[in-house]
Amino acid sequence: MKKIFIYIIVVVLGLLILVIILGDFMSGEIKDKANNPYAYEFDEFKAVDPSMIKFKEARRIGLNIEGPKAIDVKNDLIAIAYKDHLQVIDSSGLERINMPIKGPLTAVSFSPEGALYLACQNYVLVLSPEGKTIDRWEDFGEKTLITAIAFKDTVTFLADAGNRQVIRLNTKGEILDSFDGTGRLDGNYGFILPSPYFDLEVDPDNQLWVVNSGLLKVENYTDDGAVRAFWGKPSFEIEGFTGCCNPAHIAIMEDGSFVTSEKGLTRIKVYKPSGELDCVVAAPDDFEGDSEPADIAVDENGKIYVLDITSGKIRIFERNII
């Protein structure tokens, strides 16, 4: 009788231990709990008035190499710089060039003549339209981080985020001079770059535009670095830019309109040449979760090429025809 009593106690205790262990395991399901009382909420700013969206996504091109970084477009050719590859495809998706490059690649641009200029962190490779190496420009310094390349007549501009400066080069890749964005004016802050998003473009009127992303402004400079004009205002609303460093990328259309791509609130917008908001190309909801800011390019027909880094696709947007 006494033995049976002991057996019962042992079994009950065993079951109790089993229940505790199972309960402990089950409580691991709390991992899937969605409620976060400390959630950072900014969904209300993701919503975009549908009447503001005047572009539609016409096509998507899937990329077969991982790690796309930058894009440029010219004459039906799309150049994509990956971490350690260059790929050129035509608008039908047919691959023209696929070559490994000792990276990391940080920017790619077609010159007006169709040559390919590749920024590999602190040096530049010049390739023929067929992908043959023509030149290699070095000696920009160890700290240099080239994030954009643009051309004006015989001058090449490099955006150097590492040293927060714009470098001017001649056709041989020799440094002519550089400027830091202070515009030679007392009280101007110069280029403020909390993160390495530093883009520049030359517009159809041969004007140099540089993104001062820390100030949330797009600034116009003379060739020798005097600031001439700027636009852009800080705001969470659709008209402005927010966060530490926006716009992350710009492209300029044939009519002088600016296309901007932002980080944080991942969205693509078009601003008139005056800097006034024209319309929205892609709203934050068009991108997956916490997407990286998409690099952008525009072609001669006004199509906008969005390099969706997170999904690994090129998304081509066309203006709605009314």
Partner: peptide, 16 residues
């Protein structure tokens, strides 16, 4: 690493 930003996303509520 900090950018010492005026509009700091870690300090200000969205939409201030």
């Amino acid at each position: 690493l900090c950018g010492y930003c005026d509009l700091c996303g870690g300090y200000f509520k969205p939409g201030v």
